[in-house]
């Protein structure tokens, strides 16, 4: 890039110095190990071991009648053939396809306003916008459930007074938009802060040059700033997509308010949860969890490659 990273070209090192260096680096590795040991311990105990156990569990089947037997890939084929699992996956993909662009547009809009400095008390408002993110998802979902409750919720009265009579935010047609609204409320502030930070780091001289060229403001925002914060947007799309695939808390809480609205396979994680807890099919649930994990890894890796090709990473 600008030379500070790469440094001057190296001469090939003589053999002796290479050996010395590698011996030194081996010693350094060992000392380094103790520094990363605490992390490594928790990583192995809390990440790798459960993952390994989930994979191990998924290869067996425990039945009420017949006990536990090795069934190999049977749980995987059953999940892959299960319409229930995939309909949940499709639902969260639809969810992501709507929720993420809308949320990022709102977040970018407000980030731009704060970046331009046209709003007074910018810091205060940025904090207020960020607050929903600080509210635990459970609390947020409970709060929204009360607000949208069909019988007493103020939003139902609002819809009625606007002429939309008999609005039920928990009906099968509106439940997904309802969750989209809740999640947008929860996460816009967080996304906005990241975009705001990215916008702040856009070099001032570029903007000044644009201003000197009499570029209209909307063009500066959409044609200069937006492309320059694209890496941040790509990162947010990626993080939000993973979050959407793991959608769990909001539909779970809504279930308590309106059990009919949230099916047992509403999202893949809810399907996994119900398969394990209600159905007692822990092995099948483990297989479904591994498959969901693989789907997420595929999305992550492909996004990483996409970004690398554009040399954003």
């Amino acid at each position: 890039m600008n030379g500070t990273v790469t440094g001057p070209p190296r001469r090939p090192l003589p053999l002796r110095s290479l050996l010395v260096q590698s011996a030194w680096s081996r010693r350094r590795d060992r000392r380094g190990f103790w520094f990363i040991a605490p992390f490594l311990l928790f990583f192995v105990v809390l990440m790798l071991a459960p993952l390994g156990y989930a994979i191990y569990t998924s290869l067996y089947t425990t039945r009420i009648i017949g006990g536990t037997v090795f069934t190999g890939a049977a749980n995987y084929t059953q999940t892959l053939e299960s319409g229930q699992f995939w309909s949940g996956v499709i639902r969260v993909i639809i969810f992501a396809a709507i929720q993420i662009p809308v949320m990022l547009a709102i977040a970018f809009f407000f980030a731009t306003i704060f970046d331009l400095g046209v709003a007074r008390y910018g810091t205060l408002f940025r904090t207020i916008f960020f607050i929903p993110f600080a509210v635990p998802a459970v609390v947020g979902a409970v709060m929204w459930s009360f607000l949208l409750e069909p019988q007493f919720g103020p939003f139902v009265h609002l819809a009625n007074s606007l002429g939309f009579h008999g609005t039920d935010y928990f009906s099968s047609g509106l439940i997904l938009p309802t969750i989209i609204v809740i999640v947008i409320w929860e996460w816009t502030g967080y996304n906005m802060v990241i975009l705001y930070t990215a916008l702040r780091s856009v070099p001032r001289d570029v903007i000044e040059a644009a201003i000197l060229d009499d570029t209209p403001l909307w063009k500066i925002i959409l044609k200069v700033k937006l492309p320059m914060v694209r890496p941040a947007i790509v990162l947010l799309v990626f993080i939000n997509t993973i979050g959407a695939l793991q959608l769990f808390t909001e539909p779970l809480i809504l279930y308590y308010f309106e059990p009919q609205a949230i099916s047992t396979n509403f999202t893949p994680t809810i399907y996994i949860y119900n398969t394990a807890i209600a159905g007692g099919q822990y092995n099948l649930a483990a297989a479904a969890a591994v498959i969901l994990g693989v789907v997420i890894v595929i999305i992550s890796v492909s996004s990483l490659f996409a970004r690398r090709r554009r040399s954003e990473v």
Binding site: S172, Q260, S263, T264, A278, G279
Partner: peptide
């Protein structure tokens, strides 16, 4: 437990 869990989904369409 399984029957009760699945019933909310299976019978939801009857209510609506």
């Amino acid at each position: 437990t399984e029957a009760l869990t699945q019933s909310a989904t299976v019978f939801a369409g009857v209510l609506s």
